[in-house]
């Protein structure tokens, strides 16, 4: 063999039995194997953890969050003011903003990861294996979305909690400090993680519709990153009116990091806006996945 692989394959023992149950037709099927929700979730979890891009993306998410929290909290200048003079509510807001600042960048990282989760299957041909194993197709997409959502939420939560700890540690030297139990802190920390998980699944839907890795990433980043910038530049009133309802603006407004509207928008309205974008993406993905030849 002239293959690049280092190891030489030897011809396997051809007299070994192929069947591990009975050689009769449908032997394994009668052994109780079959598609199940738990099985699909496990399969998608194996897939997610067994490609390098996942570990890289999540590690980057955590590192960027911690680094930003460290930079933001260590550059805080009280200009000689006594920390005890600052109202607790303002302290909580500042710490919450510091703990969730990484979400700004994190949303781009998980958006790329979400798009790659499915477009990687299309570009490599893996999708044919996936859809052959799950010929009804939609359960495979649902399992993929669920696993991506859960994993991203947990990693996002870890990143935000870590950022809170880093910020608290650095700010305590200036006498600032708010407990994680304060709703003004833990709600944004949870909300930031929730938004990251939702944007990852949104990107998964877009990736399913677009199918190509580069295309999926371009479309998702266009919606998350470029659209808000472009609309901000446009002076027309309609642009200002639309701005708060862009997925990334609503998502970031949701945990109070930044507002894009003259009038405050309730967190649940922002959540509904994000869920609306998500629904459009997933419904489109489901329709396309079901109909198109793979």
């Amino acid at each position: 063999m002239t293959e690049t692989t280092a190891t030489e394959t030897t011809a396997p023992e051809t007299t070994a039995p192929v069947a591990h149950t009975s050689p009769a037709a449908g032997g394994a099927a009668s052994a109780g194997y079959g598609l199940s929700a738990v099985g699909l979730l496990r399969s998608e979890w194996i897939k997610l953890r067994s490609v390098r891009s996942t570990a890289w993306s999540y590690a980057l998410l955590v590192l960027v969050s911690l680094a930003l929290a460290a930079v933001m909290s260590s550059t805080l200048d009280l200009q000689g003011a006594d920390a005890s003079m600052i109202p607790a509510a303002d302290q909580a807001t500042f710490i919450a903003q510091t703990a969730t600042f990484g979400v700004f960048f994190g949303q781009l990282i998980v958006a790329v990861l979400g798009a790659l989760t499915i477009s990687g299957e299309y570009s490599t041909g893996m999708i044919r294996s996936t859809l052959t194993a799950v010929p009804r197709r939609l359960p495979a997409l649902a399992a993929k979305a669920a696993v991506l959502f859960g994993t991203t939420f947990l990693v996002g939560l870890a990143a935000n909690l870590g950022s809170y700890l880093v910020a608290s540690l650095i700010l305590s030297r200036q006498g600032l400090g708010v407990s994680i139990a304060d709703p003004a802190v833990f709600l944004p920390v949870l909300g930031g993680a929730l938004y990251l998980a939702l944007i990852a699944v949104f990107a998964l839907g877009v990736g399913t519709i677009v199918r190509s890795g580069a295309g999926g990433i371009a479309v998702v980043l266009g919606i998350v990153l470029l659209l808000p910038m472009v609309l901000q530049v446009i002076a027309a009133p309609w642009a200002a009116a639309v701005l708060p309802y862009l997925v990334s603006n609503a998502g970031i407004n949701m945990f109070g990091l930044m507002s894009f509207s003259q009038v405050p928008i309730e967190w649940w309205v922002n959540l509904l806006v994000v869920l609306g974008w998500l629904a459009v993406s997933l419904v489109g993905a489901a329709a396309v996945l079901k109909r198109r030849d793979a």
């Binding site: 449908g26 032997g27 394994a28 099927a29 109780g32 194997y33 079959g34 598609l35 199940s36 738990v38 099985g39 699909l40 496990r42 399969s43 998608e44 194996i46 897939k47 067994s50 490609v51 390098r52 891009s53 990687g120 299957e121 490599t124 041909g125 893996m126 044919r128 294996s129 052959t132 194993a133 799950v134």
Partner: peptide, 30 residues
């Protein structure tokens, strides 16, 4: 468990190990 299919060699994610590829497929059916 009804049909085993080999469509072409390109139905595998290139970034995954052979064993993980098979484990992921196997997991769907338990």
């Amino acid at each position: 468990c009804e049909v085993g299919v080999l469509l072409d060699a390109k139905a595998v994610h290139t970034g995954r190990s052979a064993r993980n590829h098979l484990l992921a497929l196997a997991a769907t059916h338990g």
